[in-house]
């Protein structure tokens, strides 16, 4: 997994509330689609017209936002279905960080498995970022700095954000959860041994 330390990049404004993961990766394209191809179906209902051509009105079809590596999204971004394809689709588009007032809880956990950073900031701050990106697209280079836990917008002061110590350290090192837990197999075995005594009915055949 690619470590996430500090990223300076174009940020695309997609400030709408409650964008769900069905929109990010619609079911009709999903079954059996390889993880590596998910970028091609990202936001399909908005990104493409019915005939398959690009919708020029959609922000991610516009310059310079095609090259965006940061997404500025609205409240409750990526709510709904647990499908991890939503993360892989953003990754396929080249997105490495999403700034929003809030995220669907399952999506946020999925982000950490692929090295994508979800940044939570207050609504007025994120809305302000979106306005900056819209007003001056070509100079809308934001810095998301996980080392110092701050976002530096093109204009204005750096804004600090909170990151869980565990998640931050894993992203900085490029570790997903499995890498961290593999060091704890003896603790898990000890838990299960004691738990089999406490709750034998949980373990078939014990």
């Amino acid at each position: 997994m690619q470590p996430f330390t500090k990223l300076t990049a174009i940020a695309a404004p997609l400030y709408r509330a409650n964008i769900n993961t069905d929109i990010i990766t619609p079911m009709q394209y999903l079954v059996g689609t390889p993880r590596e191809s998910m970028g091609g179906i990202a936001f399909a209902p908005w990104r493409f017209n019915e005939d398959g051509s690009e919708n020029p009105d959609f922000v991610l079809n516009q310059e310079p936002f095609r090259e965006a590596e940061i997404l500025i999204a609205g409240p409750n971004f990526a709510c709904g279905s647990s499908r991890e394809s939503a993360v892989w689709a953003l990754q396929g588009l080249g997105i490495r960080a999403v700034i929003a007032p809030g995220f669907g809880g399952i999506f946020a956990n999925n982000c950490y498995q692929s090295g994508i950073l979800p940044v939570v900031l207050p609504e007025d701050v994120v809305a302000g970022f979106a306005r900056q990106a819209e007003a001056a697209p070509h100079t809308a280079r934001f810095t998301v700095d996980l080392e110092n836990c701050r976002v530096i917008p093109p204009q204005g002061e750096p804004v600090p954000f909170e990151a869980d110590a565990l998640r931050r350290s894993a992203l900085l090192q490029g570790l997903d959860d499995l890498g961290m837990t593999k060091t704890r197999v003896t603790e898990i075995a000890a838990f299960q041994e004691a738990d089999r005594e406490r709750r034998p009915w949980i373990y078939p055949g014990s």
């Binding site: 991890e84 956990n109 299960q192």
Partner: peptide, 20 residues
């Protein structure tokens, strides 16, 4: 609760999950 596929891999191979 619901989780993603990568988290499922974690669960299948450790019988645990990291959760806040």
């Amino acid at each position: 609760y619901g989780i993603g596929s990568s988290e499922l891999v974690h669960v299948l191979s450790t019988q645990t999950i990291i959760q806040k």
